[in-house]
Amino acid sequence: MKALSPLLAVLAIVGFAVVGGHTHAGLVFLAVFVPYAAFAVFLVGFCYRVARWAWIPVPFRIPTTCGQQKSLPWIKPASLDNPSTGWGAFRRMALEILLFRSLFRNNRARLHDRRLVLGEDRYLWLGALAFHWSLLVILLRHLRLFVQPVPVFVSVLSRLDGAFQVGTPALYISDVVILGTLVYLTARRFRNPLARYLSMPIDYLALFLLLGIVTSGLLMRFVVRVDVAAIKQFALGLAVFRPVVTSAITPIFLVHLLLVSALAAYFPFSKLMHMGGVFLSPTRNLANNNRSKRHVNPWNHPVKTHSYAEWEDEFRDKLKTANLPLEAEDARQITGH
């Protein structure tokens, strides 16, 4: 049920693209104005969100330590899971971002014979990792449409990605992987009762948008084919702010473009900002060197405390009874001398 409204939203975008492309004005609006607007929203929104995080202080150094600290020289510290230097924290972040280290730890609680068993569960890790890497490869591959001449690494990447000669044009490995992982991630939200319970409509929206983008892309490549050169011309025109509406803008291309625009525009308002946020997470990107290097809180302000003098005043009699040394007494004695 929660998935219905996002599904309708995605279908509405598709409908817009199909219907709107019939008039020239509509075409210009959908193929030129919308992508520009979406990209602008994405860029400004993304920067705004990250800058806003950057401007908020990190008052305390609160890394979650996932291994042995660096203490005594003869105890081997876990330099990656509990880094004690900035370099170590950098490496920890690299593992986190490139290999999803934390998700790799995932396990699954269950009871067996009234005993709690924490079994290995790494499908989420595998699915998420494969999805994100494929997405990166696909994005890089798309550079061939936006940059002239095509950078060498993009050609090499495309060639490797399409190395297995399946069909013409070659089926990309990354396309297969991203479709598979998206289906898995979506199915997981529907089928896993915990995931289903905690999912919200917006969680499905991102998935449906991505599914729509991937599907329309694959359709363009294999079924309802488009003129790639014309598309590139259009894309390049967009990139240098001299847009041309060419014949290349077929309905299916418009669907693809509009879904991408929707995702881009939606990006800064959504949980997809985890892309930028993951770099800033204070439980991960700080070194656990709290006791050896002082961390400064920029807004550290004085607070009302109960000082020793006040305390001694309050318990003077009891201190005397117990024969404990008194600060004020001492002072009097010293002056009395």
Binding site: V18, L219, V223, V224, R225, T250, P251, I252
Partner: peptide, 8 residues
């Protein structure tokens, strides 16, 4: 028609 959406 072949290359168009009609055959989607």
């Amino acid at each position: 028609r072949i290359s168009g959406l009609g055959l989607l």
